[in-house]
Computed example of a mutant assay.
Amino acid sequence: MALALCLLFDSRTDRLVRELWERLEARGIRTLLSHTHGRHHPHLSYAVLREWDPEAVRAAVARLPTPGAIDIPVQGSLVFPRGRVSLACSVSSDLATRQERAVLALRSTRADLHWHYATGRWVPHVSVATGASADQLSVITAAVSDVLPLTLNADRAALIDSGTSELWPLDGVP
C-alpha cells in the first residue's frame, strides 16, 4: 500500500466533497466512498510514499514549518488515466512551496516517493471518482460544475495509510 502526507479540510469543505461523492454514488459512479475499504477522507496529497521508515517519516514531517490553514481554489475537473476524475486545484506559490518542502523532507528519509508527486510533476487534486467509464465522464463533470466556484479550506494535515485508512494527525498544517 502507500503512505500519504495529506491536507485535510474544515468541516464545511469535507461535507461538500462528501456530498459530491454521495450524488455520484447515487448515479452508480464509484467514488472514494466505495473505493477499497470505503473509509477514505476528502484530502489533497502533498506526497505519496510506496516504501518508508515510519519513524523517519514522522520525524521529518514534524520538522516541517507549519504556516497554518490554506485556501485552495478549484477551477474545474481533471481526468486521469483509468477513469480517475478529480477536482482541479489552483497552484498558488504558497501551495507549491509547501508541497516542495514536504517532498524534500520526505526524500531526506530515503522513502520511495511516487513519481507523480515529484517536484515539477505534482498536480494538486482532490479525488472525485475512481474507475469511471467514458460514458460517465459527462455526468461527473456536470456534477463538479454544479459546485463551482469552490474554495477548499485545508485546516488540518495527517499521514494516512491508504491500505488501512489509519491516520496520524499532524500538530500543524505544513
Rank of each mutant, 00 (worst) to 15 (best):
V17K: 06
R156I: 10
D146W: 08
G68H: 13
L106A: 02
S11R: 14
A118R: 07
A142S: 13
V126P: 04
S138K: 06
A154L: 03
A118Y: 06
A157E: 05
Q75M: 12
D94I: 10
D14W: 02
G120L: 00
S34W: 07
L113Y: 03
T66I: 09
R12S: 12
T130C: 14
L64R: 07
A60P: 08
G68D: 14
F80Y: 13
L33F: 08
L44A: 05
V57W: 12
S133E: 15
V147T: 15
S127R: 07
G68E: 12
T36V: 13
D146Y: 08
R15D: 14
R18S: 01
I140L: 08
H43N: 13
E51W: 00
L20M: 05
V147E: 03
E100W: 05
S45D: 14
A47P: 05
V123Q: 13
S133H: 15
G131Q: 06
G68Y: 14
V139F: 07
T141K: 14
T31G: 08
E166C: 07
F80Q: 09
A2E: 10
L8M: 10
R82E: 14
S77M: 12
T13Q: 02
D71P: 03
R50P: 01
V85G: 00
A132W: 02
A142L: 04
E51T: 09
A111H: 03
V123C: 09
G172A: 12
V48M: 11
A129V: 03
A143R: 09
D155Y: 01
L113W: 06
N153S: 12
T66V: 13
Q136R: 10
D112C: 07
L150M: 10
V85H: 11
A118D: 13
G163H: 04
